[in-house]
Every structure is written in C-alpha cells, then in structure tokens.
C-alpha cells in the first residue's frame, strides 16, 4: 500500500440558482487502495474539521450497481478506468502530484442541485412514459409458458444491465439520452412479453426523452465508451429501428 498527494479541483455550487466555480483543495496521504468516493470522504472529514462545508455528492451502494454516484473526472464520466462507476474507481489509477478536476454530470436535463449532486429525475420520467410491460400483479401465465431463446434472454440482459447513472448523457457531446432510452426499449423489444406495446413504447419514450431537453444523437459513441455496464450502441440502432417502424405503422 502506498499513498499519494493530490490537488483536487472540485466544482462547488451552493444551489441550482447560484453560480458555481472550481475550488482547489490539497489532499495528502491518499491511500492508493481507497476508492474515489472514500477519497472524497476523507476530504469531507478534513473540510468538516476545518469548519468548511463538505462537498455534496450522491452515492449509495458503493458497489457499482445502484447508479447513484457519478462525476466527471478530468473530462471523463466515472473517471479513467473502463467499465466502472465512480465508487469502484480506485486511487491507484492516479499518481503522486496529480491534479484532478472533478465536475458534476452536466446536461440541460440534469440541473445541478449542489456541488456534484444533480437532478436526474428526467431519466425516471422517460421510464414512466412507457418503459414497462403493462401487466398487473397476479393472473400472469406460468413462467415457462413462453420459451425465450437463451441468446435473446442474454441480449435482453445485456441491455437490462443499465444502472441509470446518466454517464451516457454526461459524456455525450450533445447531452443525448439515447443509450439510456435504447437500453430499456431493447430489453423489452427482445422479449416476447414486450411485443404487445412495443410501438407505443418506442413512440412515447422518445417523445418524453425529447421533451426533457436531452440532445440529439450524432453517433459519437462516447456513451458506449464510458458506460460502466458496457452497454452497446447496438441498442441505439435497435431503438432507431423500433422507432422508425412504430412511427410509420402505428395508428
């Protein structure tokens, strides 16, 4: 175990209306076995002891599955390591003397609430507009009544692995939410249970996505590159297909 000294430049913003700016903090003796969030914990303990206000950031499970944490580290959502969330990024990816710039996920649809904490409820509203199979509790057919080829189940699972962290939006040059939306549409389009509503789903989820103020996809592939769950833009192609078909034939 070794330790490193760092200079942190962190976005501080008191609330949505306030103007923010990057503040510089020095943090010494950071163990390289620490996770990035533990490093922020240490900084917050230090700030608290100095009578300053700690940095607000979202986090919960700290094992990379809840999707609550996330920040842009030196320009990359969730930091330099591939396929990890910020809580799984370890300090051994940094070197002694590094300056790290930490900014919140930014998008027109993600207002900054405080420091690194943003409002991602737009993603919830996309799901609410149709990211489900309309089935009530009870009276469902036996689980084995519809065979599903295991390859389809696997592809659906690949898409369903999305944790809704919003890194795709944060990293997209245009702030588009196509990867997020396409992951849910793909999952349900690949399964027989999702067929009945597939057209309506594609139309209303895309409409909601546009309404929230997410940008247009320009196929820049940044979303796929930073996605902590490795979700492929193949799902975006599937969404485009589903949407085209739905728009031309629905109603």
């Amino acid at each position: 175990m070794s330790s490193i000294n760092l200079t942190l430049k962190i976005w501080r913003q008191h609330n949505s209306d306030a103007l923010g700016n990057l503040e510089t903090y020095d943090l010494d003796d950071v163990h390289t076995d620490m996770s990035f969030l533990e490093m922020l914990d240490i900084l917050n303990e230090k700030l608290t002891k100095e009578g300053k206000e700690p940095v607000a950031f979202d986090h919960d499970c700290r094992e990379g599955i809840c999707g609550m944490c996330g920040a842009v580290i030196d320009g990359i959502a969730h930091g330099p390591e591939k396929e990890v969330t910020l809580c799984q990024l370890h300090m051994r990816n940094f070197s002694n003397g590094d300056t790290i710039v930490i900014e919140p996920f930014r998008s027109r649809a993600f207002p900054v609430k405080k420091d690194l904490l943003v409002d991602r409820s737009a993603l919830d509203r996309i799901i609410q507009s149709g990211g489900y199979v309309s089935v009530n509790t009870g009276g469902t057919p036996d689980g084995n009544s519809l065979p599903i080829p295991s390859s389809n189940a696997e592809l659906a699972m690949d898409a369903a692995a999305c944790i809704g962290c919003g890194a795709c939006v944060a990293s997209c040059p245009n702030g588009a939410a196509m990867l997020f939306t396409s992951a849910k549409i793909s999952q349900l389009a690949l399964l027989p249970q999702g067929q009945a509503e597939k057209k309506q789903r594609a139309l209303s989820m895309v409409a909601q996505m546009d309404e929230e103020g997410f940008g247009n996809c320009t196929n820049a592939k940044e979303c796929e590159a930073v996605c902590p769950k490795g979700i492929s833009i193949r799902n975006i192609a599937r969404l485009n297909r589903e949407y085209l078909f739905a728009a031309l034939t629905e109603g």
């Binding site: 900014e103 990293s171 940008g215 320009t218």
Partner: peptide
C-alpha cells in the same frame, strides 16, 4: 442545437473514443 448544448459545458473535456476526427 448541439452547439447550444455543448458550449462551455466542462472545464476539462476528454474524448474517450479514439479516431473521432471525422465525426467531430
């Protein structure tokens, strides 16, 4: 539209995808 979204977004911007010249 995209320019409006992307202007002055981050103080550091890093492209993760390589060979983005044509798309950019």
């Amino acid at each position: 539209q995209n320019w409006q979204v992307s202007k002055s977004r981050y103080s550091v911007t890093t492209r993760v995808v390589k060979n983005t010249f044509s798309s950019e």
